[in-house]
Structure formats: C-alpha cells, structure tokens
C-alpha cells in the first residue's frame, strides 16, 4: 500500500492508499460528524451527515467522507456554509423522529438545528442501520433487519433468531444513537408477540 498526500481543511494530511477521507481526517485530528458510521462496519452512506466537499482531478463535488477513498493531491473541505445547511437540515429531518436522542444533541448545538422545523414522526429510529449491520456483519446473526421500503422502512427482529441469540448479546443496544429505545422496544415486542413458541431465557 502506497502513501498519498491530500489536503483537508488547508492542512496537509498523509494517508494510506485504501483509506477513506473520514479515516484520513480523523487520523489528523480533523472532526467530521458521523451517525451511521462504525469502524467495524462497511461504509453505509445513509445518514449523509459526513458529507464533505472533495476536489479531485479538477472536479469538485460533494461526497460522503465515510466512503470516499483518498487520492493523491485530493483537496477536501469539511466545513462550508453549504455543508452546514446540509447537515443542519439532515439533523432536523432526523429530529422529527428522535427529538431527544442524546447523540443528536451535540450536533444540534453545533449546527444550530431547529427541533421543530419539521412535523414529528415519533418512531425514535433514524434508520442509521447500526444495529442491523452490526448483527449481520460482526455477529453474523441477522436477528434484526430492515423490512419494507421507502417511508415505511423499519427495523424488525426475527423472533426465532432473536429468541436464540439476542438476550445473550444485546451489543446493538449501545450502538443505537437514539439510546436503544426503538431497538429494545421492538425486540420486546417481537419476543412477546407469540410467546407460546419458545421460552424466554431469564435475564442474567
């Protein structure tokens, strides 16, 4: 793997080929907000909050830093008025689901987001997919998946798998940026909806 040099926020940054812009920035102590990103998981590019401005080979565009591979001589800007507007609006869209989510609060302050910009849709879930992907990619269990599509998309526990696997794991709970409310709620619901088919393991 070769080394590349790029510029992030006017700072020269050395990075390994194959790294993402986000990784390069973080290695240089430059902060880019993320919500659906997790080091152990494949880039997902769903929350879009990590978007940055990338200039490469004479072309400037917006892209998600969690997925964008670094290139030699790339110029990245992580802050601009445009990016602030994007991040603020994305936050406001997410706040319509989870107005009190702890992980959103710091960003709300930073970007001056208005909690009441949009109509409330209190599902508590911001569809970051951390629980879903962690369960599939790290735990390889697929106990929780997204079902349906479009605005109806939601997470769902499969009760056979969940009854076997979840009580002893529950690692996804702490990943949830909305403090596991939805995760725990849905898990409980899935486990109790047809309790005759299996026995719950006692909570150790």
């Amino acid at each position: 793997m070769g080394e590349v040099t790029l510029t992030i926020d006017n700072k020269e940054v050395k990075a390994e080929e194959g790294m993402t812009v986000l990784e390069a920035a973080r290695s240089a102590g430059i902060k880019i907000p993320t919500l659906c990103h997790h080091e152990k998981l494949e880039p997902y590019t769903a929350c879009r909050i990590c978007m940055v401005e990338v200039e490469s080979r004479g072309r400037s565009e917006l892209d998600t830093s969690c997925s964008r591979p670094v290139k030699d001589n790339m110029v990245v800007r992580t802050q601009s008025e445009e990016l602030t507007e994007i991040r603020r609006t994305l936050l406001e869209l997410m706040l319509s689901h989870a107005p009190d989510a702890r992980e959103l609060q710091e960003l709300v302050e930073e970007y001056g987001a208005n909690r009441n910009r949009f109509a409330k849709e209190p599902s508590f879930c911001i569809h970051c997919g951390l629980c879903v992907r962690y369960c599939a990619e790290v735990k390889k269990k697929n106990a929780v998946v997204f079902v349906k599509s479009g605005v109806r998309r939601e997470i769902s526990f499969n009760k056979e798998i969940a009854s076997r696997e979840c009580w002893k794991c529950r690692e996804c709970f702490e990943l949830c940026p909305t403090e596991a409310l939805q995760t725990a709620y849905l898990l409980t619901e899935a486990l109790t909806s047809d309790s005759s088919s299996f026995e719950l393991e006692p909570d150790a």
Binding site: K141, N142, A143, V144, V145, F146, V147, K148, S149, S156, N158, E160, I161
Partner: peptide, 12 residues
C-alpha cells in the same frame, strides 16, 4: 439463508 433476510426480501 436467514429467515430474516427472506422476510426482508418478501417485504421490500
């Protein structure tokens, strides 16, 4: 295939 994946496909 995990049943959850099959259900996901069936609802997508």
């Amino acid at each position: 295939l995990p049943l959850s994946k099959v259900q996901q496909t069936a609802t997508f």
